[in-house]
Design a protein around this nucleic acid. Structure first.
Lengths: 221, 221
DNA sequence: CCATCATTCAATCTATCAATTGAATTGATG
DNA sequence: CATCAATTCAATTGATAGATTGAATGATGG
């Protein structure tokens, strides 16, 4: 009775299929990496520490679900997100999880608990501070991700070279570090290291993909 | 190497589990119904046309995922959404699906193609028109859903009683119909029926849950 | 305190999905 | 056109999730 009509059922089935495509750790990780920009299968497989064939399958599942698309460039096939609604969907997923799953709150509090302590800088605030000058902006992602796009004027200082780079930083300016996104620990570690060395350091509250998704300027190469 | 740290993995696993909880037709349907307000297991099972035990299991899965919560009222256990971020997540899912899955676009065009033809009224426009007066507002959901909460001043006219009710409607005023949400066909059918009878009729672009989620006034019982 | 009823649990079967392996295909480059 | 590297396909295995049934739970209301 009432409203069990077929087209609605079909739509629900499609939505469910889309949700299932998000329902795997590796695929979420892939989507997070792709949020940074285009990536080859090789790059993704290496980053996830999984065999190529395995990652390839997950990527195809994502493609069948309409979440990612591909293009060929030379020998490589490059995958990208199809749409900036995809990061928004992932953000919605994160928000619901953070607010309603006790275990997630627990993990965030335990491992990202420094969050509040490290006084995250919002995008708007960072923009204002950059206009004023007096801020050193640090991109603490690996060099290839930096090369594929980064915030204007950011210095690339991967975590393993942070100690060496610290010496060269001016001590009279505040340092703002950013990395991949809200759950990437790279910028946490960088800020902690910088503070131990006596710097005034804070972290951008979210990462590069969110900056790009907000339509703000990006510098490449 | 790089950033495969354990807490991030744990979070991704949690997010994936949450996504899987959305990955079933019945559960999405349940969430949609719960978007209207609290419901007993019995009411949900009847609406979905599924055995109680089956629905109960799905509901418990949703509860374990943190998407719904329960309270007891007399003999009934009432389920509700835990958080208004949940409808937002569902909306994000819909948006990605509508924009990127060819089959979804196809279904929407075929079965909800009348959408544009029926000139949907936005919430803001409806608010303005209601203030002016001169609009008859029709809630075409089943009576129990209407009873649990409806737009202020709306008349409840379930689809099966529409033909009888049409006679009583004033012909000099425009009629706006609404139902459960963007993919509920009830209001489409109502508007078509009204137009066949010579009424000026349009539909609210989304449904009751969205109205409520927007924090607008709701009338109960 | 007991009978009743809505809901949940437990156990089973079936179907579907993920990971793995090795082979096949594709396209670029000499 | 041949070769090589990158990617994809295909087939197998093991694991996991959904539906169904019948019984158990636990709160209510007399």
């Amino acid at each position: 009775m009432s409203s069990s009509d077929s087209p609605k059922r079909q739509l629900l089935a499609q939505f469910a299929a889309l949700a299932r495509a998000l329902g795997h750790e590796h695929r979420l990780e892939l989507l997070e990496h792709l949020g940074q920009g285009e990536r080859s299968v090789e790059a993704l497989a290496t980053r996830c520490g999984q065999p190529f064939a395995n990652i390839s399958q997950h990527l195809q599942q994502l493609r069948r679900s309409g979440l990612v698309a591909t293009r060929r460039n030379g020998k490589r096939v490059l995958y990208r997100l199809t749409d900036d609604a995809v990061p928004a969907l992932l953000a919605a997923l994160r928000q619901v999880a953070e607010r309603n799953i006790a275990e997630v709150r627990h993990i965030v509090a335990r491992d990202f608990g420094a969050r509040d302590g490290l006084e995250p800088v919002s995008r708007d605030e960072l923009l204002a501070r950059l206009r004023e000058g007096g801020v050193v902006l640090l991109d603490v992602r690996p060099p290839d991700e930096y090369a594929a796009g980064h915030l204007p004027g950011a210095l690339n200082v991967p975590p393993d070279r942070l100690d060496a780079a610290i010496a060269a930083l001016p001590r009279d300016r505040e340092v703002v570090a950013y990395c991949r996104g809200p759950y990437c620990v790279l910028s946490f570690e960088a800020v902690e290291a910088l503070r131990r060395q006596g710097f005034r350091a804070r972290r951008l509250e979210d990462g590069f993909p969110e900056w790009k998704a907000a339509g703000l300027a990006v510098e490449a190469a």
